[in-house]
């Protein structure tokens, strides 16, 4: 049963990546990215990373994808025009990405991943406690980075619509 669920999520991810790589329509690639992100959240659940899966759905699939669609909407030349993008240097890009993929596969073939059974820990509580004790500096810095990014993005977007 677990193997069946694993195979389903793997297949969904591969189909999504296949659509992104092969399509020329920008908005279809953003929809396929949403599919990839949600199926990755499913894979995180299979890896016993519950909080990460929920954060992935909330922020990535519910935030970044919407931002990208708004970006596509505001950079079209006219209404009713499907945004097509050609690709240059496909053969060179294919060679480079295949080389990197084979290198990584060779590196990973020697890795030993052991399965850890951690389903008895209350993960949300543990991660929350570790945010405020072990990783508190990173936590505060990220809050600051979020504030700066929010103010900066709002100001930049306002500048572009003011004239």
């Amino acid at each position: 049963m677990i193997q069946f669920i694993q195979i389903v999520f793997f297949l969904l991810t591969l189909i999504g990546v296949g659509v992104i790589v092969s399509t020329k329509n920008v908005i279809h690639s953003v929809y396929a990215l949403a599919l990839v992100l949600v199926s990755l959240a499913g894979i995180y659940v299979l890896l016993n990373a519950e909080l990460l899966a929920i954060v992935q759905i909330l922020l990535y699939a519910g935030g970044v994808v919407i931002l990208l669609v708004f970006g596509v909407m505001m950079t079209r030349r006219g209404s009713g025009e499907t945004l097509i993008s050609e690709s240059k240097n496909s053969i060179l890009a294919l060679i480079i990405s295949l080389a990197i993929f084979l290198l990584l596969v060779y590196l990973f073939s020697n890795a030993e991943v052991e399965a850890v059974n951690i389903s008895s820990i209350d993960q949300v509580k543990e991660i929350g406690v570790s945010f405020l004790t072990d990783h508190i500096v990173a936590f505060e810095l990220i809050a600051f980075v979020l504030l700066v990014a929010l103010v900066g993005a709002a100001y930049l977007a306002k500048m572009s619509s003011n004239e």
Binding site: V38, E50, L51, I54, V55, I57, L58, A61, G62, D122, Q123, V124
Partner: peptide, 13 residues
Amino acid sequence: TGGLFLLLAIISL
């Protein structure tokens, strides 16, 4: 464990 959090995340889809 995070039932309520999961609900809010899925509604935003």
